[in-house]
Design a protein around this nucleic acid. Structure first.
Length: 871
RNA sequence: GCGGGCGUGAUGGAAUGGUAGACAUACAGGACUUAAAAUCCUGAGAGGGUAGCCUCGUGCGGGUUCGAGUCCCGCCGCCCGCACCA
């Protein structure tokens, strides 16, 4: 029997067209089946998909197709995160409008995604740069504004003076702009903020309920939100002509160490520091120096603790008659707590470093357990552990926790400057989300600035605020600002001359609610709350771990804000989250040290040794480390080429095999070959089974073999389902291999003795194989489905039932250990009685030999599993 | 520094506290072929023995248990995230 090879190049486009023509994956809101929402993070339209996309979307697709087979009404949409800087850069470089560049990229990537055979409902597709989408986003903004979820305030930003734009922290490398290389300046700009910090507590608490999220992501978000319990404390300023204020307010988590205080430190940005600098040129210079160093964040960890004494003092709040010096210190941050601290060098490392440098007293007030009060000394390492408070008058003898309570009561009852001196407070690291960007390729912030009326929201009936088509590209910076006419409008309030806000929104805003828009992509409002209620939350969200904090936190905030403004009815947008690993590849370097692409290199193997040389020059090539695929290292593999060579099914299968989905997967030629080989094996199996004739009444077959095949087919059906539901695709793949191997071995026996039972078991097994493989290799499965003479599409077929009777075994292999070491295995009927097992085991040769005629000291019998004889 | 994760054959990786290495890749041998490719079959953790078998083996050292890759304690190494957050 010779079987023609499966031709994916011919079959795959065919089935893609069939699915499209039949609208197989178009989902209706009024479908009676159970809804299930699978979503993969939508891509930025860079122009080409990469293997990471293939992996991400294949995983989602397997789940979506599986859930359809389970009778669910599956929403599996796709769109484009289409605003952003690359389009502006492309526009500048290639003199092509950002819009054109973006939509051309989308068209190309859509074609590429379709060639992968993904079961998306393309009727719901949108791009965030579609006017229809950002129009709704502007409505959301106005609703948030009305609900008090938006503020406008001055804030420090990284300013690139060459490109004339604000940079995100990630875009500043060693104090320089990543693109222009200019030294980044700190500038105060008035910016729009979304008040994510209003929800800090809820965003933190609700993490506990996200039990289908990776622990890692929850932990990262917890740390990012950064809750800490402490106190605000007022320190009364010793009257001085230099200052007008009466007190300095600090935040501390260690009020219990107040008796160990030896100084106060202000942030260089603290208002009091500014006030003092006005009359102190040395201090002013110090503050300026701090600002220069400010952005080189990476070097901060080694940076020396530096300070400048201001000349003023505060009264010690608990030690009568004593005062504490006030410093300005470079390590105190203005935007956390109050921008001022009290230093307790004995119990805080930074304070200790500072105290050592400026010869300030180190007063231990927490005594570790077992330490002698007279001999306990803090040297170069602060003691931050638990212990008993001492040297602290009325706190003496208390634990750290008890002392915190007592001192809180104490300061709560005292008054300074007409206020309670101390107040218990919870502080969060999470800050409000600055969304203003001085870019044009983004969603315009729908606000108008009027000299008379101030900041006026654009009336909702005037929306959308559309981006202009004729964007000037000749100048760096924000083209909306340079545009000759766009920003000049009449004030909606007074009708006078006014100007539009020219900042656009951070692109993270666009991606913070797209999952909700997919539920009603054409609704006249941001959502249709009734439909959103049907679909949300997303049952399974899949994407890269690089979005663990920002995107996923912003989306959680948006869900809350949208609930508050009546757009959706829930707070957590994603019930299940899965973060998949990256796609990696070997790297190659020429002798000259240049990176080489995999296609430029040829390999030779000699036993296990593997060498490489350059294809065109023949020169030796160094095989380097395995890295994430990246253009700079040239270790990328183009999905189009893989699809053209091997087909989408092979690429999909390989992406799912071997590596657990949350870990990195290494793309290798050998691996793809293996996947391709498997696909051909399945096809061959199906084709050969079809060549078998009618049953031969004279034939006799091995009934046990037939039963075994039926059992493995049913078991595989159940196991693959379980593995897919748990997103353990690699294990599902292994199960499918086992079934395939079993069927491949079974086929010749059936061919030799074609009984009716044998043929039926083979056909059933093969049909099951096709169905469990279908979510992963859908084109092959459809082809086989037709070949097997089945009606309709396998994509519409329900997952096969499992006969529970076929899952139980009547015999089991029981392991026999002596002293915990395997010595033998025995075949036993299921549920064999203990006495029978005991007798049998003790008579086994290896057991008897070890026992040397003595009775066993102990005999552990775990029925149907294991026996352990303790000698 | 803090937090999270991970260490298993040549490689990717399996393994509800119960037969370590499923499944795949690479490799070796064989069949088919004039030959190669493809395909099929077989072998294989390491070491020892003609063989039945034996010894060792999941980063290292302890512990709990009849039994530990799995649980506990202490190290070592790698990866990721955050990082002067008072």
């Amino acid at each position: 029997m010779t079987v023609e090879r499966y031709n994916s190049r011919e079959k795959e486009p065919h089935w893609q067209k069939v699915w499209e023509d039949r609208q197989t994956f178009v989902v209706r809101d009024d479908d009676a089946r159970d809804p299930y929402y699978v979503l993969e993070m939508f891509p930025y339209p860079s122009g080409r998909i990469h293997m990471g996309h293939v992996r991400n979307y294949t995983m989602g697709d397997v789940l979506a197709r599986y859930m359809r087979a389970r009778g669910k009404n599956v929403l599996h949409p796709m769109g484009w995160d289409a605003f952003g800087l690359p389009a502006e850069n492309a526009a500048m470089q290639n003199k092509v409008p950002a819009r054109d560049w973006t939509y051309a990229n989308i068209a190309n990537m859509k074609k590429q995604l379709k060639a992968i055979g993904l079961s998306f409902d393309w009727t719901r597709e949108f791009a965030t740069c579609d006017v229809a989408y950002y129009n709704q986003q502007q409505k959301l903004f106005l609703d948030f504004l009305a609900a008090g979820l938006v503020t406008r305030k001055k804030s420090k930003v990284n300013w690139d003076p060459v490109d004339m734009t604000v940079l995100a922290n990630e875009q500043v490398i060693d104090g320089r702009a990543w693109r222009s290389g200019a030294v980044v300046e700190q500038r105060e700009l008035t910016q729009w903020f979304l008040k994510i910090s209003d929800f800090a507590e809820d965003l933190l608490d609700a993490l506990d309920g996200l039990d289908q999220w990776p622990e890692k992501v929850r932990t990262m978000q917890r740390n990012w939100i950064g809750r800490s319990e402490g106190m605000r404390l007022l320190f009364e300023i010793v009257p001085s002509p230099k200052v007008t204020g009466a007190a300095v307010e600090v935040f501390t988590t260690r009020p219990d160490t107040i008796f160990g205080a030896s100084f106060i430190a202000l942030s260089p940005d603290h208002p009091l520091a500014g006030e003092l600098a006005a009359s102190d040129p040395v201090l002013a210079e110090f503050i300026a120096e701090c600002h220069r160093q400010g952005t080189a964040t990476e070097t901060l960890e080694k940076a020396e603790k530096l300070g400048h004494f201001t000349g003023i003092h505060v009264k010690h709040p608990v030690k009568d008659g004593e005062v504490l010096p006030v410093y300005v210190a470079n390590f105190v941050l203005m935007d956390y707590g109050t921008g001022a601290i009290f230093g307790c060098p004995a119990h805080d490392q930074r304070d200790l470093d500072f105290a050592v440098k400026y010869a300030l007293p180190v007063i231990p007030v927490v005594l570790p357990e077992g330490a002698e009060p007279d001999h306990f000394v803090v040297g170069t390492e602060a003691y931050v552990g638990p212990g008993k408070i001492y040297h602290s008058q009325f706190l003496d003898g208390l634990s750290v926790e008890a002392a915190k309570k007592k001192i809180a009561e104490y300061f709560g009852a005292k008054q300074v400057d007409g206020r309670p001196q101390g107040k218990v407070e919870v502080n969060y690291r999470l800050r409000d989300w600055g969304i203003s960007r001085q870019r044009y390729w983004g969603c315009p912030i729908p606000v108008i600035h009027c000299e008379e009326c101030g900041t006026v929201p654009v009336p909702v009936e005037d929306l959308p605020v559309k981006l202009p088509d004729d964007i000037p590209l000749d100048k760096p910076g924000n083209a909306l600002d340079h545009h000759p006419s766009w920003k000049h409008v009449a004030c909606p309030n007074c009708g006078g001359a006014a100007a539009r806000e020219t900042d656009t929104m951070d692109t993270f805003v666009d991606s913070s609610w797209y999952f909700a828009r997919f539920t009603a992509p054409n609704a006249a409002n941001p959502t249709d709350p009734a439909i959103a209620a049907k679909w949300l939350p997303v049952d399974q969200y899949i994407g890269g771990v690089e979005h663990a904090i920002l995107h996923l936190l912003y989306s959680r905030f948006f869900a809350r804000a949208m609930k508050k403004t009546g757009h959706i009815g829930l707070e957590e947008p994603f019930r299940g989250l899965f973060t998949q690993g990256m796609v990696t590849h070997e790297t190659y370097k020429s002798v000259a040290g240049e990176w080489l692409a995999p296609t430029e290199v040829a390999f030779e193997t000699n036993g296990t040794a593997r060498t490489a040389r350059h294809i065109s020059t023949g020169a030796a090539v160094e095989i380097g480390s395995i890295e994430k695929m990246s253009k700079s290292k040239k270790n990328v593999v183009d999905p189009d080429e893989i699809v053209a060579t091997y087909g989408a099914d092979t690429a999909r299968w390989f992406m799912l095999s071997d590596s657990p989905p949350e870990r990195d997967v290494q793309w290798t030629e050998a691996g793809v070959e293996g996947a391709s080989r498997f696909l051909q094996r399945v096809w061959k199996l199906v084709a050969e089974s079809l060549e078998l004739g009618l049953p031969d009444p004279a034939a006799t077959a091995d009934a046990a073999e037939i039963l075994a095949i039926r059992k493995i087919a049913h078991r595989t059906t159940g196991n693959v389902a379980e593995e897919i539901e748990g997103l353990r695709f690699n294990r599902a793949v292994a199960q499918i291999y086992e079934l395939t191997n079993a069927l491949t071995r079974f086929l010749p026996s059936v061919a030799a003795a074609p009984t009716a039972e044998g043929l039926s078991a083979l056909r059933e097994g093969i049909q099951r194989l096709i169905q469990v493989t279908a979510p992963m290799m859908p084109h092959l499965a459809e082809t086989c489905w037709v070949a097997l003479g089945k009606e309709g599409l396998v994509a519409d077929a329900l997952w096969p039932e499992v006969d529970p009777a076929l899952l139980v075994e009547d015999t089991v292999t029981v392991a026999v250990q002596v002293n915990g070491k395997l010595r033998a295995t025995i075949e036993l009927p299921l549920g064999a009685p203990r006495e029978h097992i005991e007798q049998l085991v003790l008579s086994l040769e290896p057991v008897a030999r070890m026992l040397e005629g003595k009775p066993p000291r102990k005999l552990i019998i775990v029925p149907d599993r294991i026996v352990n004889v303790v000698v």
